[in-house]
Simulated assay, not measured.
Amino acid sequence: MSQIVSATLVVVFAVVFRGAVKQRPVLFYVLAALVAAVGMYFTFNPSPGGMVRALAYAIQKGHPGFSMLALVMFVGVFDRKSVVRRALGPVRGELSIIGAILMLAHAVPYLANYLAMAGAVFSLKPSVQMSLALAVVLLFLLGVLAVTSIKALSVRMDARTWKRIQRLVYPFFLLVFVHLLGYMLVPLRAGATDLLVGFGFYVVIFAAYLVLRTRRFILDRRVGLPEYGAASAMISTSKEATQ
């Protein structure tokens, strides 16, 4: 249920504050960092209960960050002249950076635990070794995609190079799904029915994106439109307008 609530709030945030995010992105990056810091704090200092615990749990698990990145991905499946694309397309880069910052609340504590086990990595279970390797790859891809979404950097990059880098979002999104399956399937098989809603949410999100993105690709090819990647693409209004 936390995933659904987070996704709803993220969509509302993006729609309401899209203009402010475009005008003052650094302010929202700082706010996202503060939210991530709160999540990390309560990871090591758990709240006894109530609303604070529920909020901290959502941040720790990366629900707001994932929802933000998923929203950025889904904006790309809409027609370039659609209301959704016109409203959120110009701010996709900024939203992707916010999403990446929010994901730090999930990535940093887990990575810290993995690094603590680095000295004994070869004695760990194969499943733990795979989780460690996957975490490192995901963090690297997320960092690359986020950095190349920064307008000051992207406008100085060769268009073809930028386009190739942005396409890393596809293996990133796929590996996120593998990561989610890895940690949810085992408890589900053991009878943890409380995870069913969350598991169903992720399956629907990834399946819907696969279908809609494929459809968008086919339609764009039919009319000869270029394809600029999915997650952090459309980092500026001018680039969005040329597609």
Rank of each mutant, 00 (worst) to 15 (best):
T161Q: 11
T161L: 14
T161W: 10
W162V: 02
K163I: 03
R164G: 02
R164P: 04
I165Y: 08
I165R: 07
I165W: 05
I165T: 07
Q166F: 12
R167T: 11
R167V: 08
R167Y: 15
V169E: 13
V169L: 01
V169R: 03
Y170E: 15
P171N: 06
P171C: 10
P171G: 10
P171T: 02
F173M: 12
F173P: 07
F173L: 06
L174Y: 14
L175G: 08
V176W: 11
V176I: 12
V176E: 13
F177K: 08
F177Q: 07
H179A: 05
H179Y: 09
L180V: 10
L180K: 06
L180R: 09
L181M: 13
L181V: 05
L181F: 06
Y183H: 05
M184S: 09
M184D: 05
M184K: 13
L185I: 14
V186M: 03
V186N: 01
P187I: 02
R189T: 04
G191Q: 02
A192N: 09
T193N: 06
T193R: 14
D194H: 04
D194Y: 09
L195A: 00
L195T: 00
L196D: 06
V197P: 01
G198T: 12
G198W: 07
G200Y: 03
G200R: 09
G200P: 11
F201G: 00
F201C: 05
F201M: 02
Y202S: 02
Y202E: 06
V203G: 05
V203N: 03
V204D: 09
V204L: 12
V204S: 06
V204C: 11
F206T: 02
F206Q: 01
F206V: 01
F206M: 05
A207H: 05
A207M: 10
A208S: 14
A208E: 01
A208H: 01
A208F: 12
A208T: 13
Y209H: 07
L210M: 14
L210Q: 12
V211P: 01
V211I: 14
V211W: 11
L212R: 07
L212G: 02
L212H: 02
R213F: 12
R213P: 10
T214R: 03
T214D: 01
T214S: 13
T214W: 04
T214V: 04
R215G: 00
R215E: 01
R216K: 13
R216E: 11
F217L: 12
F217Q: 11
I218P: 03
I218F: 04
I218C: 01
L219P: 00
L219T: 05
R221D: 02
V223D: 10
V223H: 08
V223R: 13
G224M: 07
G224Y: 11
L225G: 01
L225R: 14
P226G: 00
E227F: 10
E227L: 15
E227R: 13
G229C: 10
G229R: 03
A230V: 12
A231N: 14
A231F: 14
A231W: 08
A231Q: 14
S232N: 14
A233D: 08
A233I: 07
A233E: 08
M234E: 15
I235V: 12
I235H: 09
S236L: 00
